[in-house]
Design a binder for these strands. Structure first.
Lengths: 226, 226
DNA sequence: TGAACGAAGATTGTTCAACAATTTCCGGAC
DNA sequence: GTCCGGAAATTGTTGAACAATCTTCGTTCA
């Protein structure tokens, strides 16, 4: 288990004393997990983590409460805390959310910023040409985040951020994953074209089909992995 | 593998005295607030609450972390914890969520249960006839919760539950509120009629208008209160 | 051999007491 | 009346402690 080595590289709490340490711990763990340094299924030992982060077990526990609520970690009573690893049910949940919110944003979002979407697609194409899969995945995530930004609503954006964080966990759990992102670049592109033509309803419908196919693809890959 | 392996894979027994006290405290406070026993703006003193609930300050703190994340309470560093009191911005956020999720559920929800909605409308009508405003408000809430249940998605349902909890806070904050609920009974009724006729798109559009008017009404009342 | 048993040892759940950092309260000075 | 300064109260955080629960690992018994 390489977790111990990674934990030791965590930054220690320093300087600013007495300010929402719990939230700080939560954010550190959140990004550590998002970046894939802590992989799904990894156990987060209270004692080890508290020591590594330079905070007390009680403070760490407050961070755990937040991350648990965000579904980034899984707490099993008397067993411990683990990085969440969404299975088939999790993927279905994720796409259930996306299939409602994203088309709704496209169809009814009052702040739809087509230009921002265009520039993201251009970025993604550049990343694709450069063979930078990481950058492409980032761009794809930005695209869908920008989409939900059209709702002009903080709650929905937070939900989407949470869901996309879970998506990252799914990808991290599949180390042998093929490149899921590259062939969505052009799908995003055609979506943007529809938007530029003012055909929001068509765009929403296309997006729904797109999400259906993406879910099916992921589920197929998850099944064959077991 | 030995019997031990089989036993350990069984679902964990609930009700143990030694688990989830933090979650329990959170649920107690949640319902206390929902029922209006703790009004918006009220301060939740750590010491007093911990003593009253018979838990330690640390455990109470874990509950606070959860409720803060649910936006049911507001934490101000070094000042304390208060029951949230959504203002104009909060109401706009709430309706921003509802205006996206509810029509989407109506339009695309795979588990739309028209019969359940019908029976809720019937209940609401009975409450209206009996002059029971409380029951009417409950029925109205059930109606919209059932609507989101059509999405078959837990995340969206949780978000909706959170949003409806904030709605209750808004109503509690307006002690002199007129009866906002009674004239929505028939609007829900006409919505159901459209659904029974299979006209989901029309229903979604009508619901959007309905939510727009409801928001405007609430905002007007909030403005004149200041 | 291999499965069941059971007693350490480790880990989590929770509380308590203490202390530092801030805010709030209150009485006096101008 | 308001401005100031110092108690008093409250929050933020820690460390130790203990009970409950899991894990581990050697022992016993078919």
């Amino acid at each position: 288990m390489p977790v111990n080595a990674l934990i030791s590289s965590l930054p220690l709490a320093e300087g600013s004393t007495h300010a929402h340490t719990g939230a700080w711990v939560a954010s550190v763990l959140r990004s550590r997990i998002a970046e894939g340094h802590l992989l799904p299924g990894a156990k987060l030992s209270e004692q080890a983590l508290a020591e590594a982060l330079g905070v007390s077990r009680n403070t760490l526990r407050e961070a755990f409460a937040v991350l648990d609520h965000e579904l980034i970690i899984t707490r099993i009573p008397n067993r411990g805390v683990f990085v969440a690893s969404p299975g088939v049910a999790g993927v279905k949940e994720i796409y259930g959310v996306r299939r409602m919110i994203e088309p709704a944003a496209l169809l009814w979002g009052p702040n739809l910023n087509t230009e921002a979407l265009v520039s993201i697609v251009i970025e993604a194409r550049a990343a694709l040409a450069a063979g930078d899969i990481e950058a492409m995945a980032d761009a794809n995530q930005c695209f869908h985040e920008e989409l939900v930004r059209a709702t002009g609503n903080q709650h929905l954006q937070e939900l989407m951020t949470r869901v996309l964080a879970q998506m990252r966990l799914v990808f991290h759990a599949m180390s042998d994953a093929p490149d899921f992102h590259s062939h969505y670049v052009e799908l995003n592109g055609s979506l943007v074209e529809l938007l530029q033509a003012g055909r929001r309803e068509d765009a929403a419908n296309e997006l729904r089909g797109y999400l259906d196919r993406a879910e099916a693809e992921l589920l197929a890959h998850l099944d064959e992995e077991n």
